[in-house]
Amino acid sequence: MSQEIGVIGSPDFTTGFRLAGVRRFANVPDEEKPAQLDDAVEEMLDDEDVGIVVMHDDDLDHLSRTVRQNVETSVEPVLVTLGGGAAAGGLREQIKRAIGIDLMEED
């Protein structure tokens, strides 16, 4: 089944991806992020045609706890965050929990 890439973020963030052809996007202006970002992310997670969700790492802070946890642990669609360095997307925490040591520690 072919799927698409979804982008969620401020209009500035999504425009670039739209230039590359991404048509599933949710524009949430910075001032409305605390109120609207949760719904936008949930909608994108429920969309079966979306295989990858791209977000900015800073936007994750605007999400409520449950939505953040859902999106970070979701495999279908999978979340890819930008701008947060190597330890982004909750993976670091998961690694610490599963392996027992922090493997992503920056040298």
Binding site: S2, E4, I5, L19
Partner: peptide
């Protein structure tokens, strides 16, 4: 950006 016709697709 709004004029794009081709959309990237992924198959897994």
């Amino acid at each position: 950006a709004s004029a794009l016709k081709e959309h990237p697709e992924i198959t897994s």
